[in-house]
Amino acid sequence: MVFQNISTNTKLYVRKGNINIEVKKKATGDRIRRSLGLEDTLSNQALALSIQNLIEKDLSINAFDASLDKYIDKCIKVTETPDDLINLTSLWHKYIEFKRKYWSPTTYANSGLVFAKRFSKLKNQDLRFPQKIQQELFENFSLDAVKRSCIQIKAAINWGLQERIISNVKWTIPNKAFEQLLKRQKEENDINPFSNQERDRIIEAFKTDCFAREKGRHSQYYFAIHFWFLTGCRTGELLGLQWQDIKAGYLTFCRVRSQTNVGEVTKNSLKQQHSRKFPINQQLSNLLVSIPKSKDYVFVNKVGKPISFSSLITCWKRVLSCLQIEYKRPYQCRHTFITDCLKTGKLSPSEVAKLVGTSPAMIYKHYLGAPENIDVPEL
């Protein structure tokens, strides 16, 4: 595994199959390197992240133990809990080790390891008292994060009971309790498409570099932004598109490229389907033929490497700010495309859903407008 280290004080790395940690010189005055005595396995990777988290916490309060024994002993002790008293972190390590052969690399990185790090931070680990675990989650995370955490904990407990790793444990917190709190409004509130005028101004700003601090800084993303507005594809589909996917009359979305907490991951399938064909109209054709050809990926930066979404976001924020347009995520390009297609009246919701790889139910629920925006026919 290659750890994506976002900390400025510590670094995890693998050497000769074992996980090591480095505490950087600027944090303590001396560079400290030590093997954690852990082989590079999934459960040990989560354990290493727990150790790193403890060290970072102590560094922030000037309570760092330079021997590192304090952190290693504390975390490794977690995995030695007797089966009849197994705690949350230990169960989760076992669960994701089992799920590894079924999960995609993206799921493993964005679910397995992310939740492992989150659960390791909890003081309440006893699965016999779920309300205490839930309360601590509420005190430290958003409501949506608590909901997702509880769903994952329940799945791990059900697996543990089935495999007879644990017994006499019952997760008593129903998912409906969270649904009542969240009111299922998050997705609806997040759909906020651009007007046609805003769309055109954004595209032009990227094309001309008019707000860039240096030439080529924004224009390197012009083709990607324009393509996004013309196809309504998902972020990973945009980043993963290669020239071999473009044929006469259509292109095929068949892979997703995304950045996770363990580095870049490419998956050769889409979110809800294996692949999706997208017809190329004249407008899209004109854009594609104007893009300089690269070796593999369609959208590359000014030095010829596949574009980075994090760098694109930086430019996106500046462009919208300079244009004095309300900030919206780049994903709103997808919502804008869907909304514009429906406005033309030339495509049914089912046809639009097929174009963008979602369900007709999602189109009807989120994109056809609230009742006040619907013209009632005279009968």
Rank of each mutant, 00 (worst) to 15 (best):
C210E: 15
Y222D: 04
P377Y: 05
K70S: 05
I166W: 00
G263W: 09
T10E: 03
S195N: 12
F227I: 05
W103S: 08
C315D: 07
L230P: 05
R34H: 09
Q131E: 13
Y13C: 02
H218D: 10
T89A: 10
S350Q: 14
T10Y: 01
E139A: 15
L85G: 09
N5W: 08
K94V: 01
Y364K: 10
P105C: 11
N261V: 13
I51V: 14
T339L: 04
E22A: 08
F309I: 09
T314D: 10
G232C: 01
N192Q: 11
G160S: 02
N286V: 11
D144W: 03
S104V: 02
W228E: 12
V169D: 10
T208P: 02
C254K: 11
L342M: 08
Y331W: 03
N87D: 15
F253Q: 10
S311W: 04
V262R: 11
K305H: 07
D83G: 00
L284T: 02
N9M: 01
T89Y: 01
F299L: 08
F253D: 09
W92V: 11
N140E: 05
F229W: 04
S195Y: 03
A66C: 06
N140I: 07
T81K: 01
V2R: 02
K101F: 15
L88M: 04
Q273R: 04
K24N: 02
S321E: 14
C233F: 07
K176Y: 06
A66G: 10
D190A: 15
L68V: 08
R148E: 03
